[in-house]
Amino acid sequence: MKVVVVGGTGLIGSKLVEKLDEHGHEAVPAAPGTGVNTLTGEGLAEVLQGASVVVDVSNSPSFEDDAVMEFFRTSTTNLLKAEAEAGVPHHVALSIVGTDRLEENGYFRAKLAQEKLIKASGIPYSIVHATQFFEFAKGIADSMTEGGTVRVPAARIQPMYSDDVAAALGRTAVGAPLNGMVEIAGPDAFPFDEFIRTSLAADNDSRTVVADPRAPYFGSELRETSLLPGPDAQIAATRFTDWLARRK
């Protein structure tokens, strides 16, 4: 099976390509560095020739509200048009748990717009909603730091390992289209401050972490369950504490 992975040179994409190759599939990374640009359409027709599945894990180079919306609208529109012309029978996209609950967040709003384009395209599809990745803890902390204090929302989070994200995407890609959405998450839910505090401590980072009900999450006010998956989510195996221990 030929699987084209858009964004295939990034964190998730490179892991997905490796896993698909290990299982005997022809995984083709598609990114500007490989001559494929979904914003301009360059290389799309060529790379999609003979593809059984396209998995889109691409991301905007800018998280500014207008820029991220323009990226996902343009990239997804070009990609879906090229897939229709090539007769690709399955489109898989990686999205985020909570996109439908946090529309005041510009990034989540752009991902929701992407999902709507996919659903309206007429191409059989599967959308995978993942919780945040373990690897993002430091970046999240940095965005919420004031002086030496990290102020995080008084909410809960159920993060997961990027390898498990890639594995779930691989299973979805080689399966039948869902024409719907599946949620994936890590095995444990934590108070947001505990997740960040534990991660920083593992890196010997001395910043103080405080749970603040008024602290925004990239511009959004969170409820306790805003970032948590529903009861039917697929639960990955890797625990956060085990992942931290293996990094040492």
Rank of each mutant, 00 (worst) to 15 (best):
V97Y: 02
V174S: 06
G7S: 07
E104H: 09
K81T: 15
L228F: 11
V55L: 09
S52Y: 07
R73I: 13
R247P: 10
V55A: 12
H23V: 14
V54E: 08
M160W: 04
F133Q: 05
G7H: 03
I127A: 03
G33T: 15
T198K: 13
T77S: 15
P177W: 03
G170Y: 10
D188W: 03
A189D: 09
V152I: 07
F108R: 06
R207M: 08
E83H: 05
M144K: 04
L112I: 06
Y107W: 14
H90L: 04
M1P: 11
E103A: 14
V165N: 03
I127C: 03
F133V: 02
D163G: 12
V47P: 01
V5C: 01
A233G: 09
D232A: 14
T172N: 01
T34R: 10
L48F: 09
V57K: 04
Y107A: 08
D163I: 10
L228T: 11
G98W: 04
K111L: 14
F240T: 06
V53A: 11
P124A: 07
F190A: 01
T131Y: 07
G24H: 12
P177T: 07
P187V: 11
D100R: 15
V174N: 10
I140T: 12
A176V: 11
I196R: 03
D21E: 14
E18C: 02
H25L: 04
A237Y: 11
S62T: 14
I196F: 01
F195L: 10
E70Q: 15
G170D: 05
V3F: 03
T198H: 00
L244W: 06
